[in-house]
Amino acid sequence: MRGFYWLALLPALLLLLGLYVAPLFGVLLISVTEPRPGLGNYELLLTSASVQRALWTTARISLMTTVVTLLLGYVVAYAMRTASGTAQRWMMFWVLFPFWISVLVRSFAWITLLRGEGVINTALRGIGLIEEPLPLVRNELGVVIGMVHAMLPYAILTLYANMRGIDLRLMAAARGLGAGRTAAFLRVFLPLTRPGILGATVLVFILSLGFYVTPAILGGGKTLMIAEYVALQINETLRWGLGTMLATTLMIAVLGLMWTLSRVLDVKKLFGPG
């Protein structure tokens, strides 16, 4: 009766191949056929100044996001690891709740907080700290704030999953052998979290590369990352060749990094909602 179970795979497989994999191949195909066959679109990676600016903006913002997210996320994961059971559960809930709010809603919330007439600037002016509103949004700062906010749960969950496997008595042993608190952390705990740090870094960086909604809303059109640049090519200038070439490049970069990561860690565990 194994035939039946093979049959059970069929609906999902057909959906995936027909409506997911095939369209992706379509993107790849368009990128080497429009406007004319060949690798002309890919040459733009090396020759077009606006393409390079978008790539550079994407790399810069993704890197900043990754560094800030990892630092803040590590602190939270560490506090969660060492907290008592109840505090740990509360912290976990506080991480998961914003995680499940859509990035659209969160970006909108950041607009209401950060814009010139927004909550933060109004409050700061109200108590007389500033006279002119601070430029917190519609620039790179706004984008990074929104993206760090979106990425923190991924980093915290990845780091925490790794830290949970570490025996805290090792730290006590190090202290017993005469290491100071800082030394015990730096020489015992920190090295043990290297897989978590690596996993979280790659994951946050990869996810940052493809961000569309957050930079589009909080960047105000001034900080053009790849995804938004691609959407512009398709919706405004109708340059399908250029748009699909960048999309393909993005996909290859993401899948390549993901594959590298999977050599080191179990990627499925990082993504599992469970």
């Binding site: 803040l72 996320g73 602190v75 939270v76 560490y78 506090a79 969660m80 060492t82 907290a83 008592s84 912290m91 506080w94 991480v95 709740f97 914003p98 709010i101 809603v105 969160r106 909108f108 919330a109 950041w110 209401t112 907080l113 909550v119 906010h149 923190l152 749960p153 805290l168 008595r169 730290m171 006590a172 608190r181």
Partner: peptide, 29 residues
């Protein structure tokens, strides 16, 4: 029993980051 001493500063910073995470959810209401 926790053999790892909890540092007050770390914990305070962690709760600050968590507040940053929750801030947008609470401002829209």
């Amino acid at each position: 029993m926790h053999t790892l001493k909890r540092s007050g500063a770390t914990l305070a910073l962690a709760w600050m980051v968590l507040s940053f995470l929750l801030l947008p959810a609470f401002v829209v209401f």
